[in-house]
Design a protein around this nucleic acid. Structure first.
Lengths: 202, 202
DNA sequence: GTCAGTCCCTACGCTTACGTAAGTTACGGC
DNA sequence: GCCGTAACTTACGTAAGCGTAGGGACTGAC
């Protein structure tokens, strides 16, 4: 039952992540975190200082993991935009598939509830990156680059909500979902392909 | 200070809607609702039975208002799909513009947190309607109609997140946002129009 | 005026859950 | 075999907030 500090800390983080995903920040209690870890409350306080503390660490780790994946996918500046889009969609779905609880937490409200009235900061972070990529392409083609913000929000929203739906449905396979997302974003409803396929694997 | 029952009830609903929008269900307290209305707690309990009661009424009203708008926009079965899309996007933006607090509430988590682990039921209701429309069109064109669910989620997510972004940004005018949304959904990134315009007014 | 009904208040009980204080048990070096 | 340190415990103080009991005040009819 007795663990070393590092082990216990990691275990608490795992337990807390699962509980926050299940109940949300407010409804999860540190007592239950402790209980599920087979330990009493003060242990949690010893390691993380409090409820906000452990939540912050959990969120920070998930943010990093997710952004790392997506950022890397968007990294190659010279790649074709459509390939970038494909890579980003795949990266997001991979993350969700691999860390479902983490994604659920990131999509829920923060404790301070979306600081300053603005929307969930994570999706904004991602949208900002997409906006950058898109802005370059827009400028290259002579579109109004101020509209890049609008279109990036649309794209991120499209992928994010579909991802959440897929989280419960799990019906089409991951790769197929990605292909259809790209299909819609790239071709639009008026040019939908019958059986879309990804251009580039991973 | 003293009001008739109906007046007080309406005032409480207005105050509660604003507060729920600002703080979310958990962080809003009955006491603060009462205080903002210049009244004490038992009045709220007299009218609505409890916190869940008043929240339920607020949400129900907003759901009805929003769905009514969107449903009506999607009603004309014989209209061209693109026109339907335009009408739906406009209806949603109109609702958000006219009842910002209500929309903010609907997008947040429910008290029981999206019962049964599934995603926010409101957006799902809308997506279901879109799915129906889309299914018909898919069948007509020989696409796999099982994919209508996926594409409707994508479309709703696209519009919903963009709407939330616009809620804070307010940068392009409402009609312009709708035009660009339709532009992306309909034409796709590869066929973007430079200066999209809506086909049909209101 | 007085009486009924409506509107509203103060004051309280009770639960939940955060955070803390002080004491207890296992582990490793000497 | 002793002792400090690190891991952990029980037990409590405190605060917030839901819901309720019982009583006060205003209004209008007769």
């Amino acid at each position: 039952m007795r663990m070393t500090g590092k082990e216990r800390r990691q275990q608490l983080l795992d337990v807390a992540r699962a509980l926050f995903a299940e109940k949300g920040y407010d409804s999860a209690s540190v007592e239950e975190i402790a209980h599920r870890a087979g330990v009493s409350k003060p242990v949690v306080y010893e390691h993380f200082g409090g409820k906000e503390g452990i939540y912050a660490v959990v969120v920070d780790r998930e943010m990093s993991a997710m952004l790392a994946g997506v950022t890397q996918a968007l990294a190659e500046d010279d790649a074709h935009p459509r390939v970038l889009l494909e890579r980003a969609a795949c990266a997001l779905l991979d993350y969700i598939d691999g860390s479902t609880d983490g994604f659920r937490i990131l999509v829920r409200d923060s404790p301070v509830a979306t600081a300053s009235g603005t929307f969930s900061s994570l999706l904004n972070d991602i949208a900002t990156q997409v906006e950058h990529i898109l802005g370059i392409q827009f400028a290259k083609r002579g579109y109004d680059s101020k509209l890049a913000a609008l279109y990036s929000q649309s794209l991120v929203g499209m992928v994010a909500l579909t991802a959440q739906w897929w989280l419960d449905a799990r019906k089409p396979k991951k790769a197929e979902v990605a292909a259809h997302l790209v299909n819609l974003a790239w071709n639009g409803l008026s040019h939908l392909e019958d059986k879309p396929a990804l251009r580039k694997r991973r």
